[in-house]
Amino acid sequence: MIVSTQKPLEQIVAALEGGSRVFIIGCAKCATVCKSGGEEEVFRMQDALTLAGKEITGTIVIDETCHMLRTARDLRSRREQVEEADFLLVLSCGAGIQSVAEAAEKKVVAGTDSKFLGNIRRFGQFEQRCSLCGDCRLNDSGGVCPVTVCAKGLLNGPCGGMEEGCCEVDRNNRCAWVTIYERLTGQERVRQLDAITPARDFALKRHPNSLKLEK
C-alpha cells in the first residue's frame, strides 16, 4: 500500500488561503489504513477547518482515489457541493490527488505527503521493503531487497559503515547485507554472493512511467 501522512494543519490552512469554502475528499483504501485520509480523518478535518473559519461544502471518501474514472464519476455525483467550493482538499496519496486535479477544474489542495510503498507490520506500523525499482533482484538476495532495505541501495554487499550487524545510516536498523548473508548461509546458497551484481539499469525507472496491457 501507499503510505502517506497528513500535512500539519497550519500548512493545509495556509494552502487554503484566499478561499473560504472547501470540499474534502478522502480515500477508502491506503489513506484509510494509514489514517491520513479515511472516513474518520475526513470528519476530523471538517471539524478542524470549521474551527479555522472555513465552510465545508461537503465531503466524500472515494473507493480508490487513484482510480481516475471512478474519482471523476464520484465527484460528478456531488457536482453541486464541488461547484460551491473554492478548494478541493484531498486526503489521499499523490496519485489520488492528481486523479482529482484531472477530474475537476477547481483548485486542488494536497493535504498529505506520500511517503513510500509500505508493508504493514501491524495496525499503524508500516515498513518500506520495495522501491518499485522495475528490475527485481529478490531472487539473488534471499528475498531481501538491497535496493530498498540497504540505505545506500548497494548491490554487492555491506558498506564500511556496518557495525555489529547494524546499518550505518540508522543504528536501529539491521544491515540489509548482513540479513542477506545470514539468510543465504542458512539456505546453503551463500556462494551466490560471490558473483558481482551488475549496475542497475535506471532506464527501467524513467518517469512518468505507464503500462498498457495487451487486450
Binding site: N156, G157, P158, G160, M162, E163, E164, G165, C175, W177, V178, Y181, E182, V190, L193, D194, I196
Partner: peptide, 18 residues
C-alpha cells in the same frame, strides 16, 4: 577499503572477494 575488525566479519567476505 576493508574493515578487519568489523563484526560480523564473515558477512563482509563476499564483497572482499568481489
Amino acid at each position: 577499503a576493508a574493515a578487519p575488525e568489523v563484526e560480523p566479519f564473515d558477512a563482509t567476505r563476499p564483497k572482499l572477494v568481489k
